Amino acid sequence: MIKQIFTLLFCASLFVSCKNDPKKEADNIDESASKTYDQNDGLITLKGDFIYDKNQNAAVIQTANSTIYGVVVDDNMKALNDKVKAFKKEDTDMVPVTVRVRRFESNEENTWKYRVEIKETIKVEAPNPEQNDVIKIEN
């Protein structure tokens, strides 16, 4: 009887000690993601559709609630544009991105109310093939 109890306890402790804990792994992933998304550095995380028009040297990000931000054209924006090119079929395709930006009010007339300066690219996604939002730019 004692031998059976000892064997049962031994097997239970062996099972518990060898078990991988996916919750701890998920916590580590969430923790690293939240460090990227929620740093207290004055930047905001922005998710939206990105497009850059090389001819006019202008870029915008449109969020899900239809807010449009003018994007500062700099090295970070050009690096994002290089990543986005892989997902474009046409130059006018908008590509979903998640970026960390510095947002500020535009003091130029005839531009977007807010502009953003890209500081970090978090994610670039393939556009939804069923979404048919095509913008054609003509001269």
Rank of each mutant, 00 (worst) to 15 (best):
G42P: 05
G70N: 08
K119F: 11
V99P: 02
Y52T: 01
I118W: 07
D30T: 10
K119S: 11
E31I: 00
T92W: 07
V97Y: 05
A59I: 05
D49L: 11
S34V: 06
T36E: 13
I118G: 04
P127G: 05
K119M: 15
F15T: 13
R115Q: 14
E109D: 12
K3D: 13
A33C: 08
A126W: 04
F104E: 12
E120H: 11
K23I: 08
K78V: 02
V16R: 03
E125S: 05
T63N: 03
Q62D: 07
S17K: 02
D53E: 14
N110S: 15
K83G: 02
R102L: 14
K85D: 08
I2E: 12
N57D: 14
E120A: 07
K88P: 01
G48H: 03
K123V: 04
V73Y: 06
Q62R: 13
S17Q: 08
R103D: 01
S34T: 07
N132T: 10
I68Y: 02
L14A: 15
E105G: 08
V124I: 02
T63H: 02
I137S: 03
A59W: 04
I44N: 11
E25W: 00
L8N: 09
Q131W: 06
L43V: 07
D41N: 12
K83S: 05
D38P: 01
K136T: 14
V99Y: 01
S106Q: 02
